[in-house]
Amino acid sequence: MQQALNGLTLGLLYALIALGYTLVYGIIELINFAHGELMMFGAFFAYSFCVVLDPPTAAGMATLGGISAFIAVSDRVEGVRSRGEAVGAGLGAALVFASFAYHGGLHRLPLVASVFAALPYAAVLAMALERIAYRPLRGQDRLIPLISAIGASLFLQNLGQVEPWFFGTERKSFPETDWVKDQVLAYHGVSVSTLQVVITVVAIAMMAGLYFFIHKTRVGTAMRATAQNRKVAALMGIDTDGVIVLTFALGAVLAAVGGVLYALYLGSIYPFIGYMAGIKAFTAAVLGGIGNVPGAMVGGVLLGVLESVGAAFIDPGYKDAIAFAVLILVLLVRPSGIFGTGPVEKV
């Protein structure tokens, strides 16, 4: 029972991260391998606002934020204005992002404020990644962007380890977060911690928000339209590049929040944090039927519960293998996932 409950919270985290995979896959049919690393850097941006960093590390994060902001903003502005204006706007944004990150890195912000401050950074990093590593590859054989994604993932993962500019390989933890382990409820031997409540509330709120955004707003509908037929969407006057970039940014924001919660859940944060979480979240997305938003949520929760319960019943050493075993079994029965609607129709 306790295991199932733990699994539920873990599953909600997987789901939150899985949404980023599913959104991106739904729109450009790309497995964004670097999504786990976006999550990692999102969480690290929150971490850098939350603690007092060494000046070089603050400078490193500021540089990363600045460069990403430059690429993201200038690319977006170039769609509307001249190249000169785009470069100008990009430089302005880079300056703002970099200086804020630098000062934020050297000062302490409360945890919640840090997470909010980190969101724009996660978004621009994802946008920059799309611009550099994926957009030039559209229309190529699908293996090509996938390998580019693996490359980007390796790059970011190892960038996070570079010292002194980034964080090295040592595990770090968010300061003054002992409260997360506090019990808020205990009933017949089943206990619920503050963190579990926080994860549940935040994850469900974000998923509900995403669902509302996609189904009830004009831009969300444009996103779905772009996913179904990009060419015709362009003929409707939808800026499809913009929609794709937005999808990346949205996924990264969800992942950044998920990443912070995941780091709190593990009690530590380190550059490899995105790897396993990313792969499992992706597995969750496939499990639910990739490209399908509710599917990712169900897949995530299912995976989390099975993993926790399974590890308790079988052998904790096999915990990391359970997810994939479940995946293979599910795909045997339903080749396109639980909620999959058969192969996605090609444009």
Binding site: A133, S148, Q157, N158, V162, T169
Partner: peptide, 20 residues
Amino acid sequence: AHYRMLIFGATLVALMVFRP
């Protein structure tokens, strides 16, 4: 050291972009 994998990753992306 770990710059190696960093370069490896960046090269992979560059290769795909410029010479897929």
